[in-house]
Structure formats: structure tokens, C-alpha cells
Design a binder for these strands. Structure first.
Lengths: 106, 106
DNA sequence: TTTTCATATCGAAGTTTATCTATACAATCA
DNA sequence: TGATTGTATAGATAAACTTCGATATGAAAA
């Protein structure tokens, strides 16, 4: 069985998650591509605030982005998020086996 | 199959994890009972700082404590930590199935 | 090219957080 | 009881973070 270990900075990972607005953004762009303004429209915060949070999520590797015309579309990297969760569990709860059970290939 | 859903405040959970000193404390008392001074001795921070972080971890449900004489022993609640990780993955990465595969009963 | 639209960056204000020293509290020991 | 030991709390300070308005940047449209 081949095992690939992903190196994660668990502090940066946790910090990226540790904000209510960021969690709302993550929930919004969890399963779809959204522009910055799409997110602004659905939250009660200003556009620079959303950009700021997206940057933090991006630096932590939790969102991917692509330009489409004038817009930049963001989406949550679910796989990476799940990997981060698994690593935290592995690092701190080794007696509890937490795994990504089913991973549907692209 | 009986399923028990644990209600977790994922923001509080992530905030509890989002500090380097707290992650060090978690790693230390992950698999054993340690007194506050045990932890102080192994880290380069003052005793009140350790108490402060233990309180945050306790409020998040991530550590359990018990008094033994003058000391108070702390240990990480691995199960709860693993549950928190699973819930974050479930909430934000529903396409990735993250489960506690094996859970050894007490 | 100029204008418009979408996003990023800057700088400031207010809040939260981490850390320390000093001190209070709680349990044991003499 | 009084002293000692271990932990928690209080208060202060500095750093980090969130948020905003203003503005810069970059791409597309006129």
C-alpha cells in the first residue's frame, strides 16, 4: 500500500479555520465556484474584508482560485481540508483512527 | 446502526487549536496525565500562561482534568479531538468522507 | 485609449489574544 | 494552626487580528 504523507503546518491550518467569517466563506464556496462579489453579497461584510479572508485561506492552501474575465473565482479545496483534519487527528489523537475513507478520484 | 451526532462549535474548536503553545501542550498531554508544572517544565512559558491555555482547551472540551492531592492532572481528550476533526471535515468537505474508522471501546 | 467593473492592497481604528508579574486560593505538611 | 506547595485569577502590556474606507491594480468594454 502506497502512503503519501502531506506536510501540513497544523498551526496555520487551525488559524485559517479559526474565524467565523472565514468559516462562513468556506461553507459558501465549499461546493461551487464563487466570485469575491458573490461572497460579499451573501455575507454582511465589506469587499476588502472578504478579499483579506480569502488571502488567508489561500495561503493555508484551503481555497483555489482562477480568473474568469474580470472576476476571480474561488472554491474550497475539500481534499486539502480533509487532509488537514486527518493530520490534526493523527498528530494529537493517535489512539483514534481518523481516515479519509472514500476518496472519489477526479 | 445507531448514529450519535456530537454538536460542536467548530469556530471555538478551531480557535482552541489555533495557537502554537496550545498545540505543544496538546502534544505533551496527548497520551498521559500531566500536572500543570509538568507542562511548565517542558515548555518555555510561565505557569500562568500554561493555566490560561489549559482553561481554553478545557472550555473547548479538548482536555479533561482531575485533582490528585495538590496537583491537577490534565490529559487530552483524544476522542473529542477526533470528533471535532471529523465534524469540520463533514461540515466543509462533504465530498471527502472522513471517519473515525476504528474506535477502541473503553 | 478611456472608462468601467472586479479585486487587491493600504492604512487606521477597535478588538482580541498571549504573555508576564503579582497575588489569591486550595490542599497538604509540620 | 501556620508554612509550603501547586494552581488559578487579576491586571497590565504588547502583539496580532478583524474590519473598514480609500485607493491602486488589472482586465474587459466602449
Amino acid at each position: 500500500m502506497k502512503t503519501v504523507t502531506i506536510i501540513f503546518d497544523t498551526v496555520e491550518f487551525a488559524k485559517a479555520l479559526a474565524d467565523e467569517t472565514r468559516q462562513k466563506i468556506m461553507a459558501l464556496c465549499c461546493c461551487e465556484l464563487l466570485s469575491v462579489n458573490d461572497i460579499v453579497d451573501k455575507l454582511d461584510v465589506a469587499q476588502p474584508t472578504v478579499s483579506h479572508h480569502l488571502k488567508i485561506l489561500k495561503n493555508a492552501g484551503l481555497v483555489k482560485s482562477e480568473r474568469r474575465g474580470k472576476q476571480i473565482l474561488y472554491t474550497l479545496d475539500q481534499k486539502r481540508l480533509a487532509q488537514g483534519c486527518c493530520q490534526v487527528a493523527e498528530d494529537f489523537a493517535p489512539s483514534q483512527s481518523v481516515k479519509m475513507v472514500v476518496q472519489i478520484p477526479d
